[in-house]
Amino acid sequence: MASPPLAMGFADPARDAQRVFKALMSALARPGRKQRLAARLSPPPPLTPELAAVALTLLDFETAVWLDAPLAGAPAVSDFLRFHAAPRIIAAPHDADFALISDAARMPPFEVFAQGTPDYPDRATTLLVQVAKLATGALRLEGPGIAGRVGVSAAPLPDDFPARIAANAAGFPLGIDLFLIAPDAVVGLPRSVRLAEGN
């Protein structure tokens, strides 16, 4: 039997990737604030169209990517990524430039990923996390990119997510950077964000 046809990549690679990147850049520059993210892709599940669009925007043969269990368990996802972006798909999260996470509630602790080094703090993993919902909410954040404070909520997330963010910020300039990617929107949580008083 012939294998099912491979899902399409970007229709207009230069312009589509630029739009997605602009959303990611704005999201990271203004942590906690939702940025619109439009994706016209139909990737194999459990990869969502938005996470697929982010992956095609950031990944290529020069990047190492780690997939969480549900994504790694779907060969069609690896095929899709390999065909359109050709990243090195690796098993050790500590060596990953990017981690693709579809099961946000069960994401591994941040410490298993690359944190960067004092000389090269940029050599750290960026977590790309699928969530179902993003809204303004109870998690109060402050730091570079935030005028005063901003409140964010996302679901699903692990219960200890606020504590993880606090610990990640405490290690600055080392640490991971994270994007929460929902249908139509993305929120950035760089390592520079701190929990505001009163959380």
């Binding site: 690679p13 230069a14 850049m25 290529d60 703090p121 950077d177």
Partner: peptide
Amino acid sequence: FGYLDEQTKRMIRRAILKAIAIPGY
């Protein structure tokens, strides 16, 4: 589009994201 090839743009974009995450580094 914009002279640079897409692979080069991705490499620069990844660097920009890290730069924003670690202000001033």
